[in-house]
Structures are given as structure tokens and as C-alpha cells.
Amino acid sequence: MPVKKVSSEIELSSVSAFELPLFQALRRLQQAGEVHAKRVSKFGGLTPVQLLILQVLAGERRLTASDLSGRVSLTAATLSGMLDRLEERGLLQRQRDDQDRRKQWLLLSEPGLALVQQAPSLLPPEFVERFAGLDEWERHSLTAALLRAAQLCGEME
């Protein structure tokens, strides 16, 4: 017996039952992120996204702006302005590739590395403490669910 296709009307109505609790959860995450962003900005005058950029660069020897853009989920235009500000503060350096002069590498400077080593967590401390208290399977499950939810929100434009 063939499987009946569920109409999009029924699919949407079944999703609507989740709409309010999902939005409320996303809003709570957003609020917690905003509060923590204010805490992080008191450290070195960096936004969480600027700190993320520095932390990604600290984990890599060097990256191009396009590689970094994908890693931090920023458009090239938005990232460019942030890189300019971080470079002006002496926290990162740009270096032309020896073989391909069109290619430019981004490197963390010594002051940038020192700042990253002293920086607070990108996550609120309360979250980090509670998350650490979860069983490993639950940490993996929660991480996978959040990554999937972010994926459902779509790719960068």
C-alpha cells in the first residue's frame, strides 16, 4: 500500500504547536547572550564576535579572510570591518603570501595572543558550570541539537 503524502497544511499546523516554546527558548538564549556580551565587552573592550575571531585565529597558524568568514559565520563585508578594528588595535596582522601575492593571511599578534589567553569564556559562566555537570551523552546531544537548530536557520547570506 502506498504511503500517503502529508499535505503541507498539516505539516505546518504540526510545526505551529512548537512555534511558541521554540521562540521562547531562542529568546532566552538571545537574552543570556546579550547579558554575557556586556560582561565580555568589559574585558579589553571586545565584543564576543571579536573575541571569537581572535580565538579562532589562536587555534590556527594562519587563515585567509574567506576561511575565517565561514568559521565565525560572518559575511565578508562585516568581517572586513572587524578585522580592520582588530588590526588597528594591534591584535592581529595581515601578511601577504610569499608565492601568491593576491592571497593575504591573517595572523594573531603577540598582544592578541596574550589577550586571548586572559579572556573570559565566550559562554556565560553559569552555563559553562551547568553544562559541565551534564553527562557526556547529554552534552553531545545538546550540542548536536543546537548545531542542527542553527543549520535550520539557514546559511549566511
Rank of each mutant, 00 (worst) to 15 (best):
A25N: 06
E60N: 13
L63R: 11
S8M: 13
Q55L: 08
L74V: 01
K4N: 14
L86N: 11
A76E: 13
Q95V: 09
K42H: 06
M1D: 08
G154W: 07
H140R: 15
L26M: 15
L115T: 04
L106D: 02
A17D: 09
E129H: 14
D100T: 05
G45E: 07
A32D: 09
L115R: 08
V56A: 07
T64G: 08
A114V: 07
L91E: 00
V15K: 13
L146G: 05
Q118E: 11
G45Q: 10
R94C: 03
A119D: 02
R130S: 12
R139P: 00
A32H: 08
S16Y: 12
R94A: 02
A150M: 14
S73P: 00
A76I: 10
G44S: 14
H36K: 07
S16I: 12
E87Y: 08
A145V: 13
S14Y: 12
A65K: 08
G70P: 03
V35C: 04
D98P: 12
K4P: 05
L83K: 08
Q104E: 13
E11G: 03
L83N: 02
D98H: 09
P120V: 00
T75S: 15
L108M: 14
A37K: 03
K5C: 06
R130M: 07
L106Q: 00
A114M: 11
G154M: 06
L146D: 06
K38S: 08
G90Y: 04
L86K: 10
D84L: 12
R130A: 14
F131S: 04
S7K: 10
R89S: 07
A145I: 11
L123P: 01
V116C: 04
L91V: 02
P120E: 02
A145F: 10
A114L: 14
R39L: 03
L92C: 05
L63G: 01
S121W: 00
V72D: 06
L29F: 11
S121D: 15
P124M: 13
R28P: 00
E34S: 12
M156L: 14
L57T: 01
W105D: 05
Q104M: 08
G154L: 06
L46H: 05
G45N: 04
R85S: 07
P125E: 08
L113A: 15
W137N: 09
L68R: 08
E34G: 04
Q93K: 15
L92N: 02
F131Q: 03
G112D: 09
R39K: 13
E87N: 11
G59D: 09
Q50A: 11
G33W: 07
E87T: 05
H36T: 00
E157S: 13
L54G: 00
L26F: 10
A65T: 03
G133N: 15
G81K: 11
L68M: 04
E110N: 02
Q117V: 00
L79F: 05
T47H: 07
S16T: 11
H140K: 13
V6D: 04
Q104K: 15
R96H: 05
S109W: 07
S69Y: 08
V72Y: 10
L142D: 00
M1L: 10
I10V: 15
L57S: 03
A58P: 01
F127W: 15
D84G: 02
Q50H: 11
V40K: 01
L134K: 11
F43E: 04
G90P: 02
D135P: 09
Q31G: 09
L113D: 15
R62D: 03
